[in-house]
């Protein structure tokens, strides 16, 4: 059986990044996580063929790469919403109302924990690790950014803005 070559399906910049990471580490295998991140940054998730690309580039078996990607909860094997909402419900957030916050967002967005809104804007996740922002509990992280000291109204405001916003950069 001849396997299809999918390297062309990726943006050349993504492929260049994977090769750069491969050469940076003392062992190419160390570039698995960074390579998966590079692909997920481009495609928003990791289609099965993309794992084969990583395997080919790093000299591994596709099964090796899948065994790694499936261990980590932040890699998606299906298309998520354009924005990922993570509601922290660990101890500090739980003490300050995160369960109520999640319930409110489930109702307001019309999805359950883990679901994606019908317009594809948001995937809501309420089963996540402690997000390390306990000083601003309750909080949610939307994509890379933390929104702290939330109540239902403030969370709605934040998400309404994001729904139509352009990507932000570091500053």
């Amino acid at each position: 059986m001849v396997e299809a070559d999918h390297t062309d399906a990726l943006n050349p910049a993504t492929l260049a990044r994977i090769r750069q990471m491969r050469d940076l580490y003392p062992s190419p295998r160390s570039a698995v996580l960074p390579a998966l991140w590079a692909i997920q940054d481009e495609l928003a998730y990791l289609p099965a063929w993309s794992l084969e690309v990583v395997a080919t580039e790093l000299g591994l078996l596709a099964g090796d790469v899948e065994a790694v990607s499936s261990f980590y909860s932040m890699y998606f094997n299906h298309q998520p919403g354009r924005h990922q909402i993570q509601v922290c419900r660990n101890v500090s957030c739980g003490l300050r109302g995160s369960d109520e916050l999640l319930r409110h967002l489930e109702n307001w967005l019309g999805v359950e924990d883990g679901g994606t809104t019908t317009d594809g804007a948001f995937t809501l996740e309420g089963t996540v690790e402690c997000l390390g922002a306990c000083g601003g509990a309750p909080m949610m992280q939307v994509d890379r950014f933390s929104y702290e000291n939330l109540n239902p109204e403030r969370a709605e405001e934040v998400l309404t803005k994001i729904r139509n916003s352009e990507p932000r950069d570091l500053d």
Binding site: S30, L33, P34, L36, Y75
Partner: peptide, 9 residues
């Protein structure tokens, strides 16, 4: 080298 994990306590 800054190396990002992917969600595993």
């Amino acid at each position: 080298i800054v190396h990002g994990g992917a969600g595993a306590y």
